[in-house]
Amino acid sequence: MAGVVGVGVAIPVAPATAEAAPKDKVQDGPAANASARCYQFFDLNEVAFIEAFVDHLIPADELSPSGTELGVTIYIDRQLAGAWGRGARMYLLGPWPAGTSQQGYQLPLAPADLYRSAIRAVEAHCEAVHGGSFDRLQPAQRQQIMLALSDGSLRLQQIPAQVFFDMAYANVMEGLFADPIYGGNKDKRGWRLVGFPGVMAAHAENIERFRGEPYLVEPLGIADLS
């Protein structure tokens, strides 16, 4: 039995914490209400890719809906359309010689540019090798591509596969576990998956009271307390 602490349960065993958020306020912030999945950054081809990519990492199963249903692709889309995607807080000036892996990211590309170029390159590879786009591959073929991206063995045109994969993988985890105000982690299903109680955290008494014992509460996000 996997320890699905908090999945689908809302047992307020810590009244002091649960009181702070009336039940009727427990809902997603407005940013997460994007069931129609309107994208700001991704074009239609890219949408097909990113939804397949995310759902391969986070498939629908007994533990949660798929990553796309949880808003992870919307999360990534918003990040790429915003300041982070455009390279805020990155040093992007040249020259850009290739470095050692210890020297870290050395591409002249902001994250949004990296995604765009990498998706194009992965799709070109899929067409050339498998005769179809990434989202139409058989699961086993997609798994093979994902493994080859993640270990860097896939040779893409101009783009280091692993650099793209590592960034996208981190973004998927962010979309699953960041506060729902960013568009992912819909209904706090990422937090429910692991049993993370969210932002309401005054544990000076709980750390003794629940030492070694499960602490099960309805998780609360920033929007619930704003």
Partner: peptide, 8 residues
């Protein structure tokens, strides 16, 4: 709180 409790 709650703004500071923002891991991202």
């Amino acid at each position: 709180v709650p703004m500071i409790r923002d891991e991202l």
